[in-house]
């Protein structure tokens, strides 16, 4: 029976150094480390995420796909700046860059918008990858760089035509799925926007990809969201957070509609998160960064097995 670790001792040492650098970064900035439950009431609403259900004495609970809900409850209760290093669980994810169980660092800075948070992410990442200078460009500008239409303004039929030319094998129902086409466009930006060894932030997303980011009215309206890409690998997703329960409920309704259209299960949102948002979230920005992927880039590997002690241990 193969029982040995997939990572080398040196790989694990680099991983430990990165964790220490992350904690040092937040200690210096006065951000509080917290630790919230991984088992919760709510499943992910995001149609692209699948939560693992857990049978807890006959009740259905879910392993958390990120600690977002619990951390926002802390913020609503007045925690101030917080960060957390924890495991997250996502079903249906298994590839050299995806695992059903992975480690992330998620943090929230009170009073920050998405630009101030990008500064913070850049400071942390450039400390860990000192050779890197992270560029910053809007999604629309990077789409243009890749010869794609403007994701905020393009008509759906223009997106369909471009996607077909870019090698997307659309299924029969996909031509009407604007979110799907924008996701494909983003996937092309991720791999083509920067050459190997370089990277940066893509920011200001079309409203269809707002997730839980604030939307600025425009025109055209844009979501105050960003993503960090290095070496064609997505490392972090962050945004200027929605602050109220009504907007959050509206986003859940949009997610549910897309889940129904795609034939996916629909789950009630976490009632404690909604109650906390009804109480009110302080103005803040939050981001989650994949620590396994960051460690993988540090050791110049292309498979997460190089930096997790026991890669694919569930197989």
């Amino acid at each position: 029976m193969a029982w040995r670790p997939t990572a080398t001792r040196a790989g694990l040492a680099r991983r430990a150094e990165i964790l220490a650098a992350v904690r040092a970064h937040f200690a210096a900035a006065g951000v509080l480390e917290v630790d919230t439950p991984l088992l919760g009431l709510g499943a992910a609403g995001d149609p692209a995420l699948a939560s693992f259900p857990i049978d807890l004495h006959g009740s259905r609970r879910f392993l958390q796909t990120s600690p977002e809900s619990a951390m926002k409850r802390l913020l609503a209760a007045g925690s101030g700046d917080i960060y957390q290093i924890c495991k997250a669980f996502r079903d249906d994810e298994d590839s050299p860059l995806h695992r059903p169980e992975f480690t992330l660092v998620e943090w929230y800075r009170v009073g920050f918008d998405h630009h101030a948070l990008m500064d913070d992410v850049a400071t942390l990442v450039e400390r860990i990858l000192p050779a890197l200078r992270l560029e910053r460009a809007t999604f629309a500008a990077l789409a243009q760089r890749c010869g794609a239409p403007d994701p905020r303004l393009a008509r759906t039929d223009e997106l369909v035509a471009w996607a077909a030319a870019a090698g997307f094998e659309a299924g029969p129902r996909d031509a009407a799925d604007r979110v799907l086409l924008l996701d494909f466009l983003l996937s092309e930006v991720v791999r083509r926007a920067w050459p190997r060894g370089q990277g940066g932030f893509v920011y200001d997303f079309p409203v269809e990809q707002a997730a839980y980011a604030q939307v600025r009215p425009g025109p055209p309206p844009v979501a105050s969201r960003f993503e960090l890409i290095i070496d064609g690998v997505e490392l972090a997703n962050g945004w200027h957070e929605i602050e109220d329960g009504a907007t959050q409920r509206a986003r859940h309704a949009t997610e549910d509609a897309l889940r129904r259209a795609r034939g996916l299960p629909v789950c009630a949102p976490d009632p404690r998160l909604l109650a906390a948002l009804d109480h009110g979230l302080p103005a803040c920005a939050g981001v989650a960064l994949g620590l396994d992927r960051l460690a993988m880039l540090v050791v110049a590997a292309r498979d997460l097995d190089a930096v997790v002690a026991f890669g694919r241990d569930w197989t």
Partner: peptide, 14 residues
């Protein structure tokens, strides 16, 4: 065969 999952979005096989 490569799995990609842009942002918090749909998964694709490239």
């Amino acid at each position: 065969n490569e799995m990609v999952k842009p942002g918090k979005g749909q998964a694709f096989n490239r």
